[in-house]
Write a protein that binds this DNA or RNA. Structure first.
Length: 424
RNA sequence: AGAGAGGUGGCCGAGUGGUCGAAGGCGCACGCUUGGAAAGCGUGUAUACGGCAACGUAUCGAGGGUUCGAAUCCCUUCCUCUCUGCCA
């Protein structure tokens, strides 16, 4: 959520940013927000004056009672009763206006960074880096869902029976490979200075609002109505919410956390070949990195996160590319996002395996995540996160790219974690 | 799930109707003191909103009520702890 004061004082920047995201009614939205804010402030000023008067009268009444001047006190009492009615009305008006403003603010996405390209869809994302050799596969090479079946390492059918589509069962070396990947990613992240944390997989409403999943993506999360808890769609939610309502000291930066969690997504509206196999699941494993940074350092941090993810993909020897997401494709809460995609050779398509973003103050404003700057004033911090990495598509890429007529050849870096070199 | 106790500032903790945004202590910051430090002494130390500012308003888990006036009384709700039950 943007700060109202920022919108008020930087209307042109906001409009320009919304234009880059192709928001249709941006002018109207911003105008409404600014006027709601003005009205809100006017009402508050009025209400404050009434309350101030009423507070003063109450004190006077106390004094009068003490000195026994009850008649005078009774006169003042009548006055305060009137003030009370007035203040009650105004309080309600104020609350309505504040809610109206809040709802408008929820509709305004983050302002994209200068370097975010314009564009309307994923077609317009900028390919800024690519490396790794796309292997030439042998004759009869298979997509990963066929390989999974052939070597009996992932059973989609069985998952169907137990839970439904999108909940695969990993078996034998498949299950072990999952565990190996998780440990490998966590080790890479902790070696790079991220502290490992284990967090709840269910979160409350406040946490959902804190990182911006609510109210925008309500339908995308599994919800337990009985206890009003949500299954996390990403570790970003619980990990970032560690810092909800926190005021940091400046010397606590940078804060770097990593967490492995399963992620749960309803993926309502997805269908077709693109959701085949591991391409899109309701439950999947992911290792996440989260950073809380000083505003002047957050873009440096974003670069370092990008380089970190790069290093992992290089070590896994997977062909990948990095995209800078365009205004039309970038997430609601993000100011700048880099997507990492691994080439899935047998499917002949790129699969997103990581998304690394700087949210600047957008999440921090909702989270009330601040720090004391050197003037002693509290200021919003910057939050960032990225996948390092999401498992299913890395696995898909691995299976497809590393297949040989003799079986799947496990990348060297993973062998110590798996304890085997081949799946055959 | 049942019974009981409790939620106050960064932390501990006092406060049962007015002068309480809240004693006292700890912590922290600055200053004095010192060769330097510790101790000691002094000063300061919540957050949000409005206002150029002075200052005003709100906040004692949250929401509502009683009252001229609520941290304090009443209702609802959430959370924590203890015991019992159940259980990996």
């Amino acid at each position: 959520m943007l700060q109202v004061a920022f919108i008020r004082e930087n209307k042109e920047i906001v409009l320009k940013g919304l234009a880059k995201r192709n928001i249709k009614n941006a002018e109207e939205l911003v105008a409404k927000t600014i006027s709601a804010d003005e009205e809100r402030r006017a009402i508050q000023t009025e209400l404050d004056a009434i309350l101030a008067e009423s507070n003063k009268l109450s004190k006077d009444i106390g004094q009068l009672f003490k000195s026994g001047e009850t008649q005078k006190a009774d006169i003042l009492k009548k006055k305060t009763v009137q003030l009370k009615d007035k203040s009650k009305d105004l309080t309600e008006t104020l609350q309505n206006k504040a809610t109206e403003l809040q709802e408008l603010l929820y509709l305004i996405p983050n302002i994209p960074n200068e370097i975010v390209p314009g564009g309307t869809s994923e077609e317009d994302n900028q390919n800024i880096f690519q490396e790794g050799e796309i292997p030439t596969l042998h004759k009869g090479a298979l997509p990963h869902w066929e390989l999974a079946k052939k070597y009996d390492i992932i059973d989609f059918e069985l998952g169907n029976k137990i839970a439904g589509a999108g909940f695969p069962v990993y078996k034998g070396k498949g299950a072990k490979l999952q565990r190996a990947l998780i440990n490998y990613f966590l080790d890479k992240n902790t070696a790079a200075g991220y502290e490992e944390v284990q967090v709840p997989l269910l979160v409350n409403e406040a946490s959902g609002f804190g990182t911006g999943q609510l109210p925008d993506k309500e339908g995308q999360m599994y919800h337990d109505a009985q206890d009003n808890l949500y299954l996390i769609p990403t570790a970003e939610v619980p990990v970032t919410n560690i810092f909800r309502d926190v005021i940091l000291k400046e010397d606590e930066f940078p804060i770097c956390k990593t967490a492995y969690t399963p992620c749960f997504r309803r993926e309502a509206g997805s269908y077709g070949a693109h959701v085949r196999g591991l391409n899109r699941l309701h439950q999947f494993d992911k290792v996440e990195i989260v950073r809380i940074e000083h505003p002047t350092k957050s873009y440096e941090a974003l670069d370092s996160m990008v380089n970190h993810v790069k290093g992992i993909l290089q070590e896994l020897n997977l062909p990948y590319r990095i995209l800078r997401l365009c205004g039309g494709d970038i997430g609601f809460t993000s100011a700048l996002t880099y997507d990492f995609e691994v080439f899935s050779t047998a499917q002949d398509r790129w699969l997103e395996v990581s998304s690394v973003s700087n949210f600047e103050t957008f999440q921090a404003n909702r989270l009330k995540l601040r720090f004391k700057n050197n003037e002693g004033k509290s200021e919003l911090a910057h939050t960032l996160n990225g996948s390092s990495l999401a498992l299913p598509r890395v696995l898909a890429g691995l299976l497809e790219n590393c297949q040989t007529p003799e079986g799947i050849k496990i990348p060297e870096a993973l062998v110590p974690y798996c304890g085997f070199e081949f799946i055959n």
